[in-house]
Amino acid sequence: MDLVCPAGTPASLRAAVGAGAHAVYCGFADETNARNFPGLNFSRAEMAEGVAFAHAQGVKVLCAINTFPRAGQQAIWHRALADAEAAGVDAVILADLGLLDHARCHHPGLRLHLSVQAAAANADAIGLYAAAFGVRRVVLPRVLTVEEIASITREVAVETEVFVFGGLCVMAEGRCALSSWATGLSPNMNGVCSPASHVAYADTPGGQEARLGGLLIHRTPKGAPAPYPTLCKGCFTSGDQTGHLFEDPVSLDAMTLLPALKRAGVTALKIEGRQRSRAYVTEVVRAFRAAIDAVEAGRPLPAAQLQRLTEGQAATTGAYAKTWR
């Protein structure tokens, strides 16, 4: 199984390569990728330099162009495709039907991966993307069980890639409107979920408050783990109950499921976190590379201490082994 690792900056790309990534994914510094955060991402020159550096170490680079082009502004996304190909990337990660078609017609040499943003969650949908656009790999949504992943992988003729660590989106990705509702900006169109420009933290007598677009999302005691304010992991009061309605503010950690994912036939394991630092990238990539090497060699999984890197200082295996409430 290949380890696909995040790089929000050239320094993180070098860190991922040094820590044992088989492939690194990254994006341009604009709205064409779903991590369009302040201070992140790659200029055209940085992308070309990053590709050259990674290739020299035998590591692939995948370029995420996985937002949905705005009407009348498709040229921005078309230019990103052409520039990614010129930079020498090994594949582009796309979600939009029109952009997939444009890539197939105008860049036939580019390997196409289907982004998780496309939310293709069954074999028929994935088969259509493969037949119509020549998609070679699908990144599966984080809402499937391991059994469902195994079933899809058996039925489709393309490679499957699944998330194994990091921020956990629990919605039908690419179709979630919660961030848009609260801020007017979304990962689908603008590349930002719960954008930092709309986040505010404040110390109050009742504890630390985290707001998104003016809405109070969390209030935590001073010194307690402080989650990032997203609506899907917000604390809600309904009737006489107060709690995390959709999902707790936790991160995904599926390391213990690597043997099961190997048996399911998964090709690639993805670490989330292009918005995180090179320290995070180094530690998580190193731990998962050691785990993959152990699984491939039939050895027991090594111990890893990654919990302090997770949101809420807590981890979950997510939908892979979910007991829904």
Partner: peptide
Amino acid sequence: DGDALFFS
């Protein structure tokens, strides 16, 4: 990691 320092 900055986020980890913040989360903690």
